[in-house]
């Protein structure tokens, strides 16, 4: 069973949130609309609603994360859930307890939802396949595969500024090969009808067969890749990429793929600048771009809470 098939129950309700791939346009809009309704909550004086009162959410992170874990925690707390944060070092599980045993033990503590981040692709899917029927699994990033809540908050942010997806050109710039964020964004943008999606990276950081497998246009030249686009999403460049001989240096990467005000002139004049964070200033983009008028990077963070609240509520609605 594919991840896409697993996440809806027989009545079409959401059971898990594992990947964007395979979800309908209606679902994405429903998530965004629900998030809209929560975005006012996050600005109220009392920032809580009781939708998940009495529920226990476990943030199960097998990989370090600050932003995603924190926004999930805030989202759960604003929904009045009890939250447990567990950072499990993969090395520790390798020593003894298997992933499945970890899950079984937590289940025995009567939790209702797992928010999972794991360094291996397919981890959330594996956990979803093995959890008890009343437990929902939210994928907070699995290997290079998917980061669906990030993609949803990204399209939510885009919609706030440019509501007509069917007229957009979007460029995703950076380490596409290793990026779960890019994969989920591509699915989300395609489902919402974006007609032109480009991926821009050196050949070493582009996966094979992107055209046939993801339906996007690859570019190795930044200038050509961002020509006339309405949205640019820059991806984080991991420091360890120099070790794998993917790129020679951050300096050279910045020279070729760094976003600067001068280079942005090739894009559409009101082009949105996005980044899933954390930014390496002077690597992926210049500060003038990160802090510029078209940057919506901090909005992405804020909306992340409302979007994750929406997804948690919808996923819990499908649980038995």
């Amino acid at each position: 069973m594919s991840a896409a098939d697993m996440q809806l129950d027989s009545q079409g309700r959401m059971r898990h949130f594992l990947t964007v791939e395979g979800l309908s346009r209606d679902w994405l809009i429903k998530i965004m609309d629900t998030a809209e309704s929560f975005s006012s909550v996050t600005q109220q004086r009392v920032k809580k609603v009781p939708l998940l009162r009495g529920k226990t959410v476990v943030n199960l992170f097998f990989e370090t994360s600050t932003r995603t874990r924190t926004t999930f925690e805030l989202a759960a707390k604003r929904l009045s859930a009890d939250v447990l944060n567990l950072n499990v070092q993969v090395s520790a599980t390798a020593k003894g307890e298997s992933l499945l045993d970890t899950i079984r033990n937590l289940e025995a503590m009567f939790v209702d939802m797992f928010v999972v981040r794991h360094p291996d692709s397919g981890a959330a899917h594996f956990i979803a396949r093995h959890v008890a029927p009343h437990v929902s699994v939210i994928n907070a990033g699995d290997g290079r595969h998917a980061h669906p809540t990030q993609a949803l908050l990204d399209v939510f942010t885009i919609r706030r500024h440019k509501p007509d997806f069917t007229s957009l050109k979007v460029a995703i710039v950076g380490d596409i090969l290793h990026s779960r964020v890019a994969r989920s964004q591509i699915h989300a943008l395609k489902i919402l009808g974006v007609p032109e999606i480009r991926v821009v990276a050196p050949k070493t950081l582009l996966p094979v067969a992107v055209v046939e497998s993801l339906g996007v246009m690859p570019f190795c030249d930044l200038q050509a890749g961002i020509e006339g686009v309405d949205v640019i999403i820059a991806l984080r460049l991991q420091k360890e990429r120099m070790q794998g001989a993917f790129i020679p240096s951050e300096r050279e990467y910045y020279q070729c793929f760094g976003l600067t005000a001068a280079r942005l002139k090739r894009a559409s004049p009101d082009c949105l600048i996005m980044h899933p964070g954390p930014i390496n200033r002077g690597v992926e983009m210049a500060s003038e771009v990160a802090d510029g008028v078209h940057s919506v990077i901090l909005e992405q963070v804020s909306y992340g809470i409302a979007v994750r609240m929406a997804i948690m509520v919808l996923a819990m609605g499908g649980a038995e």
Binding site: H145, A146, R183, V210
Partner: peptide
């Protein structure tokens, strides 16, 4: 296999 399925699922490929 390093191919279309690896690219979509984000699994590390063997060329």
């Amino acid at each position: 296999h390093e191919g279309k399925v690896a690219t979509r699922l984000g699994l590390p490929g063997i060329p």
